[in-house]
């Protein structure tokens, strides 16, 4: 029961804030809604017993990536409205239709697979997923089974860092 209340509240918040992100005319407001959306997703992770990911979501997404967006919004000080010009060849209707198709397809998948995914045990009976230390087990997996993806991800971050610095630097 408690989980149901938490889920529906969070789902409404997440979807509402998501709609707000893509419909608000002011970019700064969009960024604020995005932060709130990510915080709600973090709470949803806590409901799903992924405490470490919830904290990382807040730390990396809300505290890092979105601050970057806010910075860029402030640096990109526009003299005219960003959406003033429209490409005459732009196919916005087709875009909406395609998004509708994606939604339909996802709905189809959900309906088709409903009931076919059998949980390993009933969620109500399942205790804490990982006992005391979600963080320890995740770290253990990252450094054993997923060591190579982990290293690749760190190289990717390094490349991104160098790339961002090269791109953002003014030519002297």
């Amino acid at each position: 029961m408690a989980e149901a209340i938490a889920f529906y509240t969070l789902a409404v918040l997440i979807l509402g804030l998501g709609v707000a992100v893509i419909t608000t005319p002011k970019t700064v407001h969009s960024v604020v809604f995005l932060v709130l959306n990510f915080l709600c997703v973090a709470v949803l992770y806590v409901v799903l017993r992924a405490e470490f990911l919830a904290v990382i979501q807040v730390l990396v997404y809300a505290g890092g990536i979105v601050v970057l967006y806010l910075f860029v919004v402030m640096l990109v000080n526009l003299k005219r409205a960003p959406e003033a010009h429209e490409d005459p060849r732009r196919l916005a209707r087709l875009g909406l239709a395609l998004s509708g198709a994606v939604l339909l397809e996802l709905a189809g998948i959900v309906v088709y697979s409903y009931g076919r995914v059998t949980p390993a045990s009933a969620p109500a009976a399942a205790g804490p997923l990982t006992g005391a230390g979600n963080t320890e087990e995740l770290g253990w997996l990252l450094y054993t089974d997923y060591l190579i993806p982990f290293e690749v991800a760190s190289v990717l971050l390094l490349v991104a860092m160098v790339g961002a610095i090269v791109l953002a630097r003014r030519e002297s």
Binding site: F7, V76, P82, E83, G95, L106
Partner: peptide, 27 residues
């Protein structure tokens, strides 16, 4: 899990609509 899948699909579709309809790159 189906509940979460539906939530996830809906959020994903919102993202798709945002990418296809908005013209501001930051959005």
């Amino acid at each position: 899990p189906a509940h979460y899948t539906v939530l996830s699909a809906a959020l994903f579709s919102i993202g798709v609509i945002g990418v296809l309809v908005r013209r501001n790159v930051i959005i």
